[in-house]
Design a protein around this nucleic acid. Structure first.
Lengths: 117, 117
DNA sequence: CCCATCTACATTGACAGACATAGTAATATG
DNA sequence: CATATTACTATGTCTGTCAATGTAGATGGG
């Protein structure tokens, strides 16, 4: 059996997760919500409240931009598009994640044998 | 060039980090503080305020226990010892970390090609 | 011997992100 | 026509981290 993903394990990664999806094409709230579940192999659900507050934060910081879709054939959809600044931010976040992963491995599983105290 | 470890990337891992150190032997606040810096290769500093509030939380939850060291030769030191419950908690947290790491890799770096939308 | 630095522990208040909860409204389905 | 699904939003709460601050003994260089 595997483990669980708690709130704090995901914290700080939501922006990066959203940017990763948007850098591969424009999308809207509900679709992004579903995509995250699919990407995680049904193992993680980012709550809608979290998602939409992240959209506001990202838009405020000019990492994404939004526009209303064509509403002629049905319900309104607000689409999000990643900005150039957002792409740069994503690249940095990815580096940060790889870096943090290595450090966390040492901190969580590392032995103290070769660490001077 | 690497990345940076922000507050949110470490959030939720401090308890596990402390338990990893204590499962390898009793220690006290300041030594644990130094050990974390050393374990991370000087890349990460867990602030003392964070550390001491974590001690309270862990002790309250019976994951660690504390005792005052021998004060005859100098300054007082409060030592911490991991409990059996703490060891079990550590093992679960380690599993959670490995699990979360895989999911996060998919969410942060994963492509949408093979994901049904 | 004095002052700075290090060791060692601790508290308080502020902040930010995630989420529970609730609500609105349109479309689709049986 | 009732229910589920799609789609977006607001409000308030909780928790962990950290900045700032404080106490006090030990240590070492000038």
């Amino acid at each position: 059996m595997g483990g669980r993903i708690t709130t704090d394990l995901i914290r700080g990664h939501t922006d990066t997760i959203i940017l990763n999806i948007l850098r591969q094409g424009d999308s809207y709230g509900y679709e992004i919500y579903k995509t995250i579940i699919a990407l995680s192999g049904q193992q993680y659900e980012l709550k809608e409240a979290t998602l939409y507050s992240a959209f506001r934060r990202l838009e405020h910081d000019d990492l994404i931009a939004s526009y209303w879709g064509d509403e002629s054939q049905g319900g309104r959809r607000k689409y999000y598009r990643i900005t150039e600044k957002g792409r740069e931010n994503y690249e940095q976040n990815r580096k940060d994640w790889r870096f943090a992963k290595d450090i966390l491995d040492k901190l969580i599983e590392g032995g103290l044998e070769n660490v001077e105290k």
